[in-house]
Amino acid sequence: MARARLIAITLAGVAALAAGLWIGQGLSGSQEPPPQVQGFVMSERPPVVPFTLTDQDGKPFGPERWRGHWSLLYFGYTYCPDVCPTALTELAQLQKALRERNAEGDLHYWMVSVDPQRDSPQRLKTYVHFFSPSFEGATGSEAELKKLMYQFGVVAMRAPGGGEDSYTIDHSSTFTLIDPEGRLIAIFTPPHDPETMLPQLLAVQAYYQHIR
């Protein structure tokens, strides 16, 4: 996917989210100002509307799986030729950097497939484990995926051309951070430089301790 098209799709999704929520720096009701990040810190932390997906082991997966720990989400698909492998490589580098600092804590990493037609739970599991054995995957029906994607300002659309099993999907390339209460707290937009994202992620987690 061309870089300009990727950025346009990502910004379109975030703009749609902003239409329904206050997003940005300095808008929080807390006296503690939100940290500056490559992306957005939520001024209000909306709870995730219920959804039902299937995880990489074939088990039901809903928003309760994001409670009690931090979660970092990426929406992509296993047949993605360029954007997804790059993003997951960067996510693995971020994980490595956090572990080197003993700062990973209880952070979980998820890839949610936007291609349920081709991405079975087993295929998704094999794919994400290539980047890190601790990465997890989930997928589900188009209706349930759209419900979840809408909440996080994620856009995905089948690109023109391609056969029934050889199509590509243009999609947002954001990392979505869910706090231990299962609420959306931050969205990190590309480019995803692990060295830049690491201190920003830690800053958002520290900010959460002040506003919870």
Rank of each mutant, 00 (worst) to 15 (best):
I187H: 00
S120N: 12
R212M: 12
A2T: 06
A12Y: 00
M42T: 10
W70I: 06
L91P: 03
P63W: 14
V155S: 06
A8F: 10
G153V: 00
L145R: 03
S113N: 13
A143Y: 12
V37D: 12
L184M: 10
I185C: 07
S71Y: 14
A19K: 11
K96I: 13
S132V: 06
M149N: 05
G39Q: 07
A97H: 08
V41Y: 00
M157L: 14
H129Q: 15
L201M: 12
M111K: 11
H192Y: 04
F135W: 09
R99D: 14
A15P: 08
D55P: 01
P190M: 08
W110F: 09
R3V: 09
P194T: 06
A143T: 13
S71D: 12
V49P: 03
E32N: 09
F188S: 07
G39E: 05
S28L: 04
L98Y: 03
Q36C: 05
L91T: 11
V155D: 00
R67C: 10
T176V: 15
D57T: 09
F131P: 13
A92F: 08
H129G: 06
Q93Y: 11
T189E: 14
L124C: 15
D115F: 05
G13D: 01
A92L: 05
P180G: 14
M1T: 11
P81W: 09
W66S: 06
P34L: 05
E142S: 13
Y74W: 10
K147M: 07
G140N: 03
G29F: 07
L21H: 01
Q95Y: 02
K146P: 10
V14D: 01
V49C: 06
P81Q: 14
L11G: 08
P63M: 12
L201W: 00
G20C: 04
R212K: 15
E100I: 13
S120D: 06
P116G: 15
V49T: 14
S132H: 12
V114P: 03
V114N: 03
A159D: 11
P191N: 03
Q122L: 04
T189W: 04
A186S: 14
H69L: 02
F188G: 08
D82L: 01
M149D: 07
S120M: 04
L202W: 01
S28F: 02
Q209F: 15
F75V: 02
P60L: 13
